[in-house]
Design a protein around this nucleic acid. Structure first.
Length: 107
DNA sequence: TACTTGACCGTAA
DNA sequence: ATTACGGCCAAGT
């Protein structure tokens, strides 16, 4: 069942620390979801009780219909945005970059 | 069954 | 900076 993935996605999102953000792709990797689009769909239907404001697009922007409210919520928890974009280099949840099954780097 | 629709992503022009 | 395109995949028509 992909009901398992559904729950895993929710868990990963719940574990994003305050003051950090993760991209849809990050969540997909960590939760083994087959594609980032699934993450978006899951949030849309079953994300009301999650810290959804911490999930943003890979370019640092938010989904259009949420933009204003989301950026405001993030600002309140210490994540600033400039020109509608969050600086991922500064505020991306680092654990999300750490493996999701990456081979060890040779460097 | 076939086509459309998303809270998306990476690449390229 | 912006647009376009292909890939993604579950749900809804």
């Amino acid at each position: 069942m992909d009901e398992a993935i559904h729950e895993k996605v929710r868990e990963v999102i719940k574990s994003i620390p305050r003051g950090r953000v993760a991209t849809y792709g990050d969540i997909a990797d960590l939760s083994r979801a087959p594609s980032p689009r699934l993450v978006g769909r899951i949030l849309n239907e079953d994300g009301h009780d999650l810290p959804w404001q911490r999930v943003i697009k890979a370019d640092g922007t938010c989904a259009p219909h949420l933009r204003d409210e989301q950026l405001q919520m993030l600002r309140e928890e210490g994540v600033p945005s400039l020109d509608g974009k969050v600086n991922l280099r500064e505020y991306r949840w680092e654990d999300a970059r750490k493996d999701a099954d990456e081979p060890p780097s040779l460097f």
